[in-house]
């Protein structure tokens, strides 16, 4: 149980220096509670990807504060020495394309994360299988990624994001390549998993089909976020 999900306060990111400096984020505030799925939408160049990379601890913000659960991970500087371990244990990623490892079968694609964290192979595979069952793709556990449909691949990538029970999942356009039905199915799964595993999920999207499903939406424009209530249609 994660007490506070993720909280971002006054997050800034500046690229470059001097006259050529560009402020991609100009003081972003955001909070996502455990079990909640929020949308992050905005036009191209608004700073969505920069925000996602800062949240994913792959680029360093210039200033601000980020708290994950009870832990302050950034406060005008990283507070966690091992960002790789932070990404592995505390943050789940779902990408636009599933980006499954093509030479690992489905179960090992999911089990890889706990294995990387030092868990025994058998235990890691058990955890992976539980999630695959929850996501209704357990019957494809021994299949290779290339043998799966697009929807199945995306469900496997969701299982991979969840397997280490991270307090937050960052989903970057997870429904972009899918048709309406499958896109809504993915959002339904994300909501279900968020509730089941008490995970805060941020979904970056342009997808008009799924925007009405969010209860809360953060609009990002010119490096600043603005919170709006969403319709939360499909999941009431």
């Amino acid at each position: 149980m994660h007490e506070k999900g993720i909280r971002i306060e006054g997050l800034r990111k500046r690229y470059g220096k001097g006259d050529t400096a560009l402020d991609a984020l100009k003081g972003v505030d955001m909070q996502v509670a455990p079990g909640e799925v929020v949308g992050l939408i905005g036009p191209s160049g608004s700073g969505k990807s920069t925000l996602l990379k800062c949240l994913g601890a792959v680029i360093e913000p210039t200033a601000g504060r980020m708290t994950l659960g009870e832990e302050v991970i950034y406060d005008d500087g990283w507070k966690i020495p091992d960002l790789r371990a932070l990404r592995r244990d505390k943050i789940g990623f779902v990408f636009q394309a599933p980006y499954l490892i093509p030479f690992l079968d489905v179960i090992d694609n999911v089990a890889l994360l706990p294995m990387l964290a030092g868990h025994p192979n058998a235990e890691s595979r058990k955890r992976a299988l539980e999630l695959l069952e929850a996501l209704d793709v357990a019957h494809r556990a021994k299949a290779m990624p290339s043998q799966l449909s697009g929807g199945e691949q995306q469900r496997v990538s969701i299982a991979r994001a969840l397997v280490n029970r991270p307090p937050v999942i960052l989903a970057d356009e997870p429904t972009a390549p899918l048709d309406s039905e499958r896109a809504l199915a993915v959002i339904r799964i994300l909501n279900q998993m968020a509730r089941q595993y008490e995970t805060a999920i941020i979904v970056v999207t342009h997808d008009e089909k799924i925007i009405p499903t969010f209860k809360r939406i953060y609009h990002i424009r010119d490096g600043k976020t603005q919170e709006e209530a969403g319709e939360g249609r499909a999941f009431e």
Binding site: G56, R84, R87, F95, Y99, I101, L116, R160
Partner: peptide
Amino acid sequence: IREIAVLKLIGTR
């Protein structure tokens, strides 16, 4: 390269 980027992102040493 993409798989390696994913591996690094998910915490592979």
